[in-house]
Design a protein around this nucleic acid. Structure first.
Lengths: 263, 263
DNA sequence: GTAGCGTTCATACACACGTTTCAATCCGCA
DNA sequence: TGCGGATTGAAACGTGTGTATGAACGCTAC
C-alpha cells in the first residue's frame, strides 16, 4: 500500500507530468494544450482530467513537485547561514543562497538541465495562472529573503531594494528561460574545466552590482546631459514629418495593396 | 488627396490601433483577441480584417508605427555621437543612446507613459509572432549597437558580451513591462523634482555594471565555496525522503480527494 | 470464472478564437 | 436626386480549446 501508483500498466501519470514539463519549458503555459500534452505522453486526452482533474491542477502538481523542494532547501540554507554568521551576510552571499540549491537540484536530479529552464519559464511566464500561483505559494520565502537582503544592504531604502531585486530577478529568469544558460556554461567550460564555485561566482558577480551599485554620480549625469542635448538637436532633423507610416492614397480595403508576398 | 484616411465618419482604423495597443500592454499578444479589440474600439468584429487583413497585420502596423521612429532615432543618435567622439565611447554612453530616444518619445508623444510599457511587453512577449517580428525587423540596429558596445568594451570576448547584453536587456524589459517603471519614477520624484538626466543616469548606473563587472574574484569564489559546503551538509538532512509529494493511498480518481475548496 | 475497481478509450459538448461572407449603410460626386 | 465605391453590420464557418460522459478494458480478489 501507499505505493502511490498502485495499479495500471501505467506510469501514465508520470508521463503526463514529464510531457507537461517539456511543453511548458518550450512554449509557456498558454501554448501548451491538453492535446499536445496527451499526444506527447502517449496517453488519451481524457487522462489529464482523470488523473489531475483539470489542466490547472496538472500544472500545479508539476510546479509544486519541482519548486517546493527547491524553496525548502533555500530557506534551510538561509537559516543555517544566518545561524552560523549572526553578524550579518553580504548581498552576494544571499544571492548565492538563492542560486546554490537550484544549481544542485539541476545537476543531481532527473530531467537534469531542464530544471533551470523550467525555473526561468516559471518566473517569466505572463499567464495569469502562473503568476498568481507564484504569488500565492512563495510569499513567505520571498519575504524571508527580502529581509535578508535588507539586512545585508541597510543603506538602501526598502522601496529601492524591492525595485533592484525585481530588476535582478527578471534578468536572471529572462536568461534562464532561453538556451543562454547552456551557452554560458559551455562557453565557460570551453576554456577549461571550471569549478562549480567559479561558475556561480561569475554569475553572482554579474548580478550583485545591480543591488550594490551607488546612485548616478555627477560625472555620469554629465555624460547623460551631453547625450540628451545631442539627442534634442538630432531628433528634430531628418524625420519624415510625423506621419511616419500610414501608407496609401485611398481606395478599397487598404491592406490589399501592400503586396502580400509573404504568407 | 493623400489624406491617409480619406473617407468614413470613421477614425475606426485609429481606434483599433489604440485599443490594440492597450490590450497588448495589459496582457500580451496571445491574450488579446479580436473580439476584445473590436469591442474596446467600439467597432465591428470584421473591422480588423477589413482594415488590416489579419490580426498579425494589425499588430505589425502597431509595432512598426511605434518602433520604427524609435529605432530610427537611436541609430541617428549613435551615428552623431560616434562622429563627435571618434576616439571611442563608454558603455554607459551607449546604453544612454538606447534609452534616451525611448525616454523622449514616451514624454512628448500621445499615449504618453504607455510607450514604455509597450516597449517592455514587446521585448518580453513569448509569442512566436512577436519574437520573429523583432528578430526580422531589428537585426540591423541590434548589430550596430552590438558593435558599439564591442568597441566600448574591447576586453570582453564577443560571446561574453552577447550574453551580458542579453542579460541587461532582459532586466530592462522585464522591468518596463510592469508598472514598476512608474513606481521608480514616482519614488524618485517623491524626494524632490529630479532632472531627467539624473533619472536616466540612475537607471544606467544600475545596468552598466552588468556589462562592465569583472569576473568573479578569488574572494568571491571562496564565499561561494563555503556556501556550497554548507548547502551540501544541510541538504542531506531534513527532507522527506524523495517522494516529496505524490499524495495519496490509492482509490478512485486521485484528484477528487484533495479537498477542492477553491474553484 | 466472475464481480469490482482502477484505468483507458472514443466521442461529444460548449465555448472562444481568427476569418469570411454578403447585405445594409454611409457619403462624395455627378 | 441618384449612382457607386468605401465602410459597417450581423451572422456564420472551420478549427482549436478545456471538459464531460459512458462504454470497454485489465487486473486483483473472492
Amino acid at each position: 500500500m501507499n505505493k502511490t501508483q498502485r495499479t495500471g500498466h501505467g506510469d501514465t501519470r508520470k508521463r503526463l507530468l514529464e510531457a507537461t514539463e517539456w511543453l511548458f519549458i518550450e512554449g509557456g503555459y498558454e501554448a501548451m494544450s491538453l492535446r499536445h500534452i496527451t499526444t506527447r505522453a502517449g496517453a488519451n486526452l481524457a487522462a489529464v482530467n482523470y488523473h489531475f482533474g483539470s489542466k490547472e491542477a496538472l500544472m500545479q502538481e508539476l510546479l509544486s513537485q519541482r519548486l517546493d523542494p527547491l524553496n525548502h532547501d533555500r530557506l534551510q540554507l538561509l537559516s543555517a547561514c544566518e545561524q552560523k554568521h549572526p553578524d550579518g551576510l553580504g548581498a552576494a552571499a544571499v544571492l548565492g543562497m538563492l542560486f546554490i540549491p537550484a544549481f544542485r537540484l539541476s545537476h543531481g536530479n532527473t530531467s537534469g538541465p531542464a530544471f533551470m529552464r523550467l525555473l526561468g519559464r516559471v518566473y517569466s511566464d505572463p499567464s495569469l495562472f502562473i503568476r498568481s500561483y507564484l504569488q500565492d505559494h512563495y510569499r513567505p520565502i520571498s519575504g524571508r529573503f527580502f529581509e535578508a537582503f535588507s539586512r545585508a544592504l541597510p543603506a538602501l531604502p526598502r522601496q529601492e531594494l524591492g525595485l533592484r531585486l525585481h530588476f535582478a530577478l527578471k534578468a536572471l529568469s529572462g536568461m534562464l528561460a532561453g538556451e543562454d544558460m547552456q551557452e554560458l556554461i559551455s562557453s565557460i567550460n570551453k576554456g577549461e574545466t571550471i569549478n562549480d564555485a567559479e561558475l556561480l561566482a561569475r554569475l553572482i558577480s554579474l548580478l550583485s552590482p545591480i543591488l550594490t551599485a551607488p546612485f548616478g554620480t555627477p560625472a555620469q549625469v554629465k555624460v547623460i546631459e551631453q547625450l540628451l542635448e545631442l539627442d534634442r538637436s538630432t531628433a528634430r532633423t531628418g524625420r519624415a514629418a510625423d506621419t511616419t507610416h500610414t501608407a496609401g492614397e485611398s481606395s478599397a480595403p487598404q491592406w490589399i495593396k501592400e503586396g502580400r508576398l509573404a504568407s
